[in-house]
């Protein structure tokens, strides 16, 4: 069994769309577009393969910044115009870069642009390796972002997230620190239950527990586990879970001993903001 833990930020903002799944204004399919066939395109001497490697390096360089990830995205875009650079690895890594921007850019127009271009990379990667764990994961995440930014894609995005993450979970393939369990778990926490959608507090909590089992030191897993605990406390009338959630947030995200995983200061600041919001909402 292949288990890969990728030292990257995991992106889980898919769940914001969940509440809009009940009555989306329209139903659009998440785009299935792949990169155009550019077999005859000349690279004018410049080799696109090292360019893709540089793009990857720009993403990996920490602490990560918006500017550098934007540069990574633009380098990937140039490199992947050429067939020669379109390996499975380069494609899913380009999808990851765009997923990061779709998650962390402060501008919604930019976020949507990257969600769409990331999907094209993920679709192309899946064409090369239909079972590729990383491509399946980022395809799910990007579909989630697109659904979040344009609710017309919401219903289809949920179906894509569910299909891809369940496939990875069945195979016990970890990506991004318990990513498949975390993404599905958060979606289940926030989505309506059947018959409308796949929401279930119990299943969401179980999947988040599993994400924590996979990556117990990853603060983002604790962030969403705390959300599940607050909901559990309310739903089951068990205030001890709310207390557990507060302690968890303090220990892993907000207290003096809480620290960003090396190189993930940017993402950590975002999780801290969410953690404060969670505490505020559960005073």
């Amino acid at each position: 069994m292949v288990r890969r833990r990728l030292a990257i930020s995991a992106i889980t903002a898919v769940a914001a769309l969940a509440a809009l799944l009940v009555f989306p204004a329209a139903c659009k399919q998440v785009p299935e577009e792949v990169l155009h066939n550019n077999a005859n395109k000349e690279s004018n001497g410049a080799d696109p393969v090292p360019l893709a490697q540089d793009a990857e390096a720009a993403f990996e360089q920490t602490p990560r910044t918006l500017e550098r990830v934007r540069i990574s995205s633009s380098m990937f875009a140039r490199a992947l115009e050429f067939e020669k650079a379109r390996s499975y690895d380069a494609l899913w890594k380009a999808a990851r870069t765009d997923a990061w921007l779709a998650g962390y850019s402060p501008d919604n127009v930019e976020r949507e642009r990257h969600a769409r271009s990331g999907l094209v990379y993920a679709n192309t990667a899946l064409k090369l390796q239909p079972q590729g764990a990383e491509a399946l994961f980022y395809h799910a995440v990007l579909a989630g972002f697109l659904g979040d930014l344009d609710h017309d894609y919401g219903l289809d995005a949920v179906s894509k997230i569910e299909t891809n993450t369940k496939l990875l979970i069945e195979r016990d393939q970890d990506v991004a620190h318990g990513g498949p369990w975390r993404v599905l778990g958060v979606l289940q926490l926030r989505a309506p239950g059947p018959p409308v959608s796949i929401g279930s507090l119990r299943n969401g909590k179980k999947n988040l527990e599993k994400a924590l089992e996979k990556a117990p030191l990853w603060p983002e897993n604790h962030l969403y586990m705390a959300e599940a605990e607050f909901l559990w406390a309310k739903d089951k009338d068990k205030p001890e879970f709310a207390q557990q959630a507060r302690e968890r947030l303090d220990k892993w995200l907000l207290g003096q001993q809480a620290a960003a995983p090396a190189g993930h200061e940017f993402e950590f600041a975002d999780w801290q903001k969410k953690a404060r919001g969670l505490l505020e909402a559960n005073k």
Binding site: P192, G193, P194, G199, S200, L201, R202, N203, D235, K236
Partner: peptide, 14 residues
């Protein structure tokens, strides 16, 4: 609000 969670409570014998 969520009938599947109600059903899981039965299954989990909560």
């Amino acid at each position: 609000d969520n009938l599947s969670d109600a059903a899981y409570e039965i299954i989990d014998e909560e």
